[in-house]
């Protein structure tokens, strides 16, 4: 176990990443989501993993996971109106195609304003990525994001919010394909370079 120290507490309160993570957004919650987005957008600049941390003050990370259609289109529009570049982590073979049927053309429009990250094809945990599934769950979605956006995704997230683990095939493959930052349940961390 790595102990949480008082230094971690001080650093976290001094310069936190303030994250808002969305999956579905029910119609009844839209007003409160709008209010919170407006509030959080005013707390600090957008978190960009390639930019050095500000000495003090929060940075803002707004993310929409799984490619839920209503949430993605609503979130893209609301964040754009606030001047906030958000992160979208779509699934391309979603477990519920009725909820998540954003077209590639719509993703292209979203990517013109926001950033698209890697989140597997069918909602796999990193432990579910094997030699049999790596093409479908890692290689194909990264290639598809690049085809849609014109860039390789630099940031990714696994179902379950795990951190980078070099023992996992999925993590090693994602890194080899250009993923340099990983969102976990606790952190957004640089992926360590391969040795």
């Amino acid at each position: 176990m790595t102990r949480w120290t008082s230094g971690h507490s001080a650093a976290l309160t001094r310069s936190p990443i303030v994250a808002l993570n969305f999956h579905e957004i029910g119609a009844e919650h839209r007003a409160s989501v709008r209010e919170t987005l407006r509030h959080v957008a005013g707390l600090g600049p957008r978190y960009d993993p390639d930019e050095p941390a500000t000495a003090d003050g929060p940075r803002v990370f707004v993310a929409f996971y799984d490619g839920m259609r209503d949430a993605a289109l609503f979130g893209a529009e609301e964040c754009a109106a606030l001047g906030l570049k958000a992160y979208f982590f779509p699934l391309f073979e979603h477990y519920d195609p009725h909820l998540a049927n954003v077209t590639d053309d719509e993703w292209r429009q979203i990517a013109a304003v926001h950033e698209i990250g890697f989140h597997t094809a069918g909602h796999a945990t990193v432990a579910e990525v094997t030699h049999l599934t790596v093409q479908r769950e890692v290689l194909a979605p990264i290639a598809r994001i690049e085809a849609i956006t014109g860039y390789r995704p630099r940031i990714g997230a696994w179902k379950g919010g795990s951190r980078f683990d070099p023992d996992q095939l999925g993590d090693r493959t994602a890194r080899a394909e250009g993923i340099r930052h990983l969102v976990s349940n606790w952190s957004i961390e640089r992926v360590p370079p391969s040795r």
């Binding site: 120290t5 008082s6 230094g7 971690h8 507490s9 001080a10 650093a11 976290l12 001094r14 310069s15 936190p16 990443i17 303030v18 994250a19 808002l20 993570n21 969305f22 999956h23 579905e24 957004i25 029910g26 919650h29 409160s32 989501v33 919170t36 987005l37 959080v40 978190y47 993993p49 050095p52 941390a53 929060p58 990370f61 949430a71 969102v183 606790w186 952190s187 957004i188 961390e189 640089r190």
Partner: peptide, 23 residues
């Protein structure tokens, strides 16, 4: 489906493990 903020560590803040700081 509501928006509750969460604070996350970055690689930089995780590296700040000095235990002499006040909580």
């Amino acid at each position: 489906g509501t928006a509750i903020p969460m604070v996350l560590f970055s690689s930089d803040t995780l590296g700040d493990a000095d235990d002499r700081a006040e909580q």
